[in-house]
Design a protein around this nucleic acid. Structure first.
Length: 108
DNA sequence: GTGATGACTATGG
DNA sequence: ACCATAGCCATCA
């Protein structure tokens, strides 16, 4: 095994997102010290789909389910979030800030 | 080694 | 307010 890659770190953070909470790509990237690599976080999420990572809890900065079309169904991501008590309308999380979970703040 | 790509974000017109 | 462009940086062809 080698040192944890960027992706591995993203997985760890994503796995620590509490139930019913969400975060943004930028927040994770910032926690990892690569705030400008938010895209990498999203990409890592794509890899995480095959892992035990709650990728549906990671959305963009405005709480929009930009990655929903990476899931099997068209509304699977939304269903998962709603199942956790997160209100989602038109592919966007309602009261995003209330559900927001900042790893940089919660973990350190 | 170079170029292209991406589930983003910030800024400018 | 909306659309376009730039920056960022890790991975792949």
């Amino acid at each position: 095994m080698e040192e944890p890659n960027f992706f591995d770190k993203v997985y760890e953070v994503a796995q620590q997102i509490p139930y019913g909470r969400v975060t943004s790509y930028g927040a994770i990237a910032k926690y990892l010290g690569a705030a400008r690599s938010a895209r990498m976080v999203g990409w890592a999420m794509n890899n995480s789909l095959a892992k035990d990572v709650p990728a549906h809890r990671v959305v963009n900065r405005v709480g929009a389910l930009t990655g929903k079309h990476h899931f099997d169904g068209t509304n699977l991501m939304q269903q998962l979030l709603e199942n956790e008590g997160v209100e989602v309308v038109d592919n966007q999380i309602i009261d995003f800030q209330r559900h927001f979970w900042d790893p940089a703040k919660e973990l350190g």
